[in-house]
Design a protein around this nucleic acid. Structure first.
Lengths: 185, 185
DNA sequence: GTTCTTTGCTAATTAAATTAGCTTTGATAT
DNA sequence: ATATCAAAGCTAATTTAATTAGCAAAGAAC
């Protein structure tokens, strides 16, 4: 019972023993903060990359995504899914890129609802020109990684993305469970 | 010379051999995407955590930061620095928390410009109540991590934050260098 | 004491991103 | 065939997040 009570009233934000240290979640919280801190700084880097070719960070990301997914005839929905944005937002941003002459829309060969997105020649040119600026910055962003750490980080992050999708589905369920008090276990 | 030309015209977004694979930056780009994808999902989780205690994701983060840094008598500037937000924005969000009765401002004992931030009793209570919801979600978010991977990830991310600070200073310098064409090497 | 810097605040603005609702097209199930 | 349902993309309206610029008060440096 004391164990139950401690669990129920715990301030711990995580429970798996793998993520605890001396019974505290200090390191876990620190990890979360590091991830947030690094992402914030990556966002600044993206802002500079975009600015370098006259784009907002978001437009820059959308253009990259179009380029990345062009080989699979991606439309608005695929870009939205890839970037975790709403479709409506992607529509707006893609249209800006089209107006700027950096991306092109073509009708999908078989599905007439869809649109096929491609970078324009000028869009490609800008991204290529940007690379010279990105290279030293990206090298520096990940300077402390050795080769094997780079591979490890990639593997871990890819796993976490999958975990996160499951976790967010779980979150909805858990919220309901917590509302429906207890006994019904 | 052919090597120089290839370098100059390369589309590679990274140059360090540790970050390349078969001469391509494919895995590197994939890593960037994974980091972005995971952060986006963490942001959704924060949104849910905040909503659970009636706060926006940002207010939730500010409250956490106040709690985290309370022991060092942190003021607006320290919170801003910790969260990588502007001071003005932190002022606004902290004032909302104060109005909600979740945080308190006291004058700094020796520096009368400064303000000392603390979570209120009610603020503490809400964060404690939230933990029960966070625990299963956080466990799930990092479900695929084994203990040693958790430690490794923490170590790598902490290193990357330091790298990123250096990289962003570099970025400014590089931008100037690229504008001043070439010969002057 | 004068200059420089830091702290926090206010005001105004901008940019990011969403939700809701609509139209067209396509898929499903009679 | 045709009625129903789902998916793709667009528009409009709104919301939220977050910034920059400029200020006043306090402290630090010289």
């Amino acid at each position: 019972m004391s164990s139950d009570m401690r669990t129920a009233g715990s301030r711990l934000t995580v429970e798996r023993p793998e993520l605890l240290e001396d019974g505290t979640d200090t390191r876990f919280r620190d990890l979360l903060h590091s991830i947030f801190a690094f992402s914030s700084r990556l966002q600044v880097a993206r802002t500079r990359f975009g600015a370098h070719i006259g784009l907002s960070p978001t437009q820059y990301m959308v253009l990259i995504a179009i380029s990345r997914l062009a080989s699979e005839n991606a439309g608005i929905a695929q870009i939205a899914n890839w970037l975790y944005f709403s479709g409506a937002f992607v529509t707006i941003e893609v249209n800006k890129l089209v107006k700027l002459g950096l991306a092109e829309k073509a009708p999908h060969p078989v599905d007439r609802r869809r649109v096929v997105l491609r970078p324009s020649a000028e869009g490609e040119r800008r991204l290529a020109a940007l690379a010279a600026f990105q290279r030293p910055v990206n090298d520096a962003l990940f300077k402390s990684l050795k080769k094997d750490e780079f591979l490890t980080l990639h593997r871990l992050m890819a796993g976490l993305v999958a975990d996160a999708d499951a976790a967010l589905s779980l979150a909805e369920y858990v919220e309901d469970q917590l509302k429906a008090p207890a006994k019904a276990g």
